[in-house]
Amino acid sequence: MTANALNADALLEKMQQELSALLSQGKRPDPLMIGIHTGGVWLAERLHRSLGLSSPLGVLDISFHRDDFDQSGLNPKVQPSKLPCPTEGRHIILVDDVIMSGRTIRAAMNELFDFGRPASVTLVTLLDLQQRELPIQADIIGGTLAISADQAVKLTGPEPLALEIRNRSED
């Protein structure tokens, strides 16, 4: 993949066009957009604004649902999930920055379903690192990128949004 793959604004633009096209089909009426803390929230704020969605934006923190609590313990900076309106029966647009193993999305859906039973969930991510460990796929992606096992991709923001590749040993 080229360096262009890491241009966050270009990827976001592509996501937005595809999402806009999907919503215009009318199968997801009055969608409720929810960003996954923290990078997903930055992206969701941009998408929410540019698509002019009427329902307020929700924020999901998945710390309490992670599957690696026994290994890494509790995230000390856990933020409460804030969903501004009931999710029961709603069409959810779930936004995250990077999809890799799929574990974050698994945790996010568990947290989401604790608030009620949505009509549908559409997953939108900026970057797919294609290292899935669970049978979970995004409906819309900005781009794909292959990285080596000792690398990680991080989104910084909220202004400006930028993607950077880091070596895990530097974290």
Partner: peptide
């Protein structure tokens, strides 16, 4: 964040 959990169905 656990106080805020009380709004959830579950």
């Amino acid at each position: 964040s656990f106080v805020d959990m009380s709004v959830k169905q579950v």
